[in-house]
């Protein structure tokens, strides 16, 4: 074998090693991070942790109010953003002709919105919802701010999903004498539902994980909220506060982070089950 061939073979081996090295590093980093979270956090978690209010700034007690606040804020965000997103997607896919400049404008504006940093949403929400509309630091302000943030995610998912609905379904519904709005609500939207739910998974994940946009909208108050106009601290904000502002709060921050990750996984799992169930219900033979 020539020296040249040997050298080439060595290059191949080096490159191959590097290519396998990258995922190895990534896996290691993720494992390290998760191991840390579990290692430091798991010890604190028990039923009481999930069902009681925090004491001594979070260094004792539990996270029940944060769980409730997180659920409420995310629910508000979805309740506001989902109809808007789906409505916009239907408008783009089913109503406006593909060449319409209105469609291009809507799409582009949502693209830019998707790119806005979350802290900018925080500024916006603080100013508009808390100050201008007089909602103050409240779950409502936080939820509405998150709604703006997840709107483009939900919209894009819904749009792609509706585009994927076979034209046969669309024309079939119309040929059966369904008025167009019924064809959309009774046939096309149900056909696109799995994709819409996948988008919802992304959006809810993003909303549950959000901190920067919430600190100045839903606020820091760690009491159990009793109304939508109450301020409430979400899990992510709690993690932030414990790690930055509470000495000796690290273990509790990790515990809360672990709960947050668990909650994200459970939500994603449930939604993906729902999506798969719907897909199977309508499965087309390949």
């Amino acid at each position: 074998m020539s020296i040249d061939a040997l050298r080439r073979r060595r290059t191949a081996r080096v490159v191959d090693a590097a290519v396998w090295g990258v995922p190895a590093i990534t896996v290691a980093a993720l494992a390290w991070l998760l191991a840390d979270v579990v290692w430091h956090g798991a010890g604190q978690i028990d039923l009481a942790f999930l069902t009681t209010a925090p004491r001594s700034a979070g260094r004792a007690g539990g996270i029940a109010p944060m769980l409730v606040s997180t659920a409420i804020v995310v629910a508000i965000a979805v309740a506001v953003a989902l109809p808007l997103a789906v409505g916009t997607a239907v408008l783009l896919v089913e109503v406006l002709p593909p060449s319409a400049s209105a469609g291009r404008w809507i799409r582009r504006s949502l693209d830019i919105l998707a790119g806005m940093p979350s802290i900018v949403f925080g500024l916006f929400g603080n100013l508009v919802f808390c100050t201008m509309l007089g909602m103050g630091f409240s779950l409502l302000s936080g939820g509405l701010t998150l709604a703006c943030m997840v709107l483009p995610i939900l919209m894009r998912a819904a749009e792609e999903s509706l585009r994927g609905v076979p034209d046969g379904c669309r024309r079939g519904a119309l040929a059966l004498g369904m008025p167009r709005h019924r064809a959309i609500t009774a046939v096309i939207l149900p056909c696109g539902m799995p994709g819409i739910i996948d988008g919802l998974t992304l959006g809810v994940g993003r909303a549950m994980a959000e901190t920067a946009a919430l600190v100045f909208t839903s606020g820091y108050v760690d009491r159990m909220p009793s109304a939508l106009t109450d301020s409430g601290r979400t899990l992510a904000v709690h993690v932030f506060d414990l790690s930055m502002n509470v000495t000796g709060g690290d273990r509790w921050a990790y515990a809360t982070a672990l709960v947050l990750i668990g909650l994200l996984l459970v939500t994603a799992g449930l939604l993906s089950l729902a999506s798969r169930f719907l897909q199977r219900k309508g499965a087309h033979k390949p």
Binding site: L33, M208, A209, D250, A253, I261
Partner: peptide, 9 residues
């Protein structure tokens, strides 16, 4: 999907 606050922590 990991929240940025967890990365920060």
């Amino acid at each position: 999907g990991i929240p940025s606050v967890v990365y920060g922590l």
